[in-house]
């Protein structure tokens, strides 16, 4: 699913990386536990999280996450956005909760990552 379609489905705002909205993501992963993101995500994934510290971007960078969608209306600080921009990452925010956002995107065909 393209980021621009995801944005429309969950009424998200773009915080940075609007030039990447045509990027296609294969999977989504929702978690506030960055340790789990590192353990499970396998690339070409959209990360849904309510955590807004710089380690979210660092974790995404290491795990090849292509875009981050903050849920529950969270907006990170400028340092976090700057770090995302440095890493050519699109960052979006939606007012929906993690559960609702996941439900909407799943019903539109965006699947979770497959575990080994």
């Amino acid at each position: 699913m393209k980021l621009i379609d995801i944005m429309e489905k969950v009424k998200a705002e773009v915080l940075c990386g609007s030039e990447f909205l045509n990027t296609e993501v294969q999977y989504a992963f929702g978690s506030d536990l960055m340790s789990d993101v590192l353990a499970y995500v396998k690339g070409n994934t959209l990360l849904l999280t309510g955590l807004t510290n710089p380690q979210v971007i660092r974790t995404a960078e290491m795990a090849d996450v292509v875009a981050i969608l903050f849920v529950r209306g969270k907006i990170p600080g400028k340092d976090v956005i700057d770090l995302a921009m440095e890493n050519s990452m699109a960052v979006l925010t939606t007012k929906y909760t993690l559960y609702t956002t996941s439900g909407i995107l799943y019903s539109e065909g965006l699947r979770g990552i497959e575990q080994d």
Binding site: D32, L33, M34, S35, D36, V37, L38, A39, L51, N53, Q55, V56, T59
Partner: peptide
């Protein structure tokens, strides 16, 4: 609270 300390670090490094 920062999203770490889940006890996955060392096992994940090994993996």
């Amino acid at each position: 609270e920062m999203g770490f300390g889940a006890g996955m670090g060392l096992p994940n490094m090994k993996k």
